[in-house]
């Protein structure tokens, strides 16, 4: 499995690509911005983007989708049945699907947006806005925030601590790093959040 990352200075939303070392069918996660750098990344590795995973339908995570569809016409996997006018294959928590030759596990984490989906593929977890290095996603209310913290603890923190978290914003992290250095997930705050 080969992982590639794209961090555009404009928009600062991460896009990731997962494929095999030999090229061919690949998965792209969150096409926040489609630019020449991303195109080079795909083409120089001989990838054919056959699947797009959308963590949630916010513009800074899908703005590059229209261009991507014109070039590669991939299947879109998302929480909603339509993204930016394109039909998707809607998925929900607990589902396990095979896409572009990779098993994809879907995890629901409530509290950020109703269509948010976390995708686990091999040793990687793509969290979108749900969880990033030292931060959790924004929430519309204090209730939603507590729900988000509880859901992250219940469904993500309980996973293998060595899994690599690849967030929609910010640098990569691990479950173990978040347990130690995420202000909202540290044990000292557990009593007030639970």
């Amino acid at each position: 499995m080969k992982l590639l990352s794209h961090f555009p200075a404009i928009g600062v939303s991460n896009t990731y690509i997962l494929g095999s070392r030999d090229g061919g069918k690949a998965i792209l996660i969150d096409p926040g911005r489609f630019d020449v750098t991303l195109l080079d990344l795909i083409e120089n590795n001989n990838f054919d983007i056959s699947t797009v995973l959308v963590t949630h339908d916010h513009e800074n995570h899908i703005k590059g989708l229209r261009t991507l569809m014109k070039i590669y016409n991939p299947v879109i996997i998302a929480g909603n049945d339509e993204i930016a006018g394109f039909r998707t294959r809607p998925v929900d928590g607990g589902m396990k699907i095979d896409q572009s030759g990779f098993p994809v596990e879907i995890i629901n984490v409530e509290g950020h947006s109703s269509d948010s989906r976390v995708f686990k593929v091999g040793p990687y977890i793509f969290t979108g806005d749900i969880l990033s290095a030292g931060r959790i996603g924004s929430s519309p209310s204090s209730y939603s925030r507590e729900l988000l913290i509880h859901s992250i603890r219940d469904r993500l923190v309980s996973l293998d601590e060595d899994l690599l978290i690849l967030p929609g914003h910010g640098p990569p992290t691990t479950i173990s790093a978040e347990i130690r250095w995420n202000p909202d997930l540290r044990d000292e705050h557990r009593d007030s959040a639970d």
Partner: peptide
Amino acid sequence: MMSVLAAG
């Protein structure tokens, strides 16, 4: 360095 995990 770009998008590096150096925590801890």
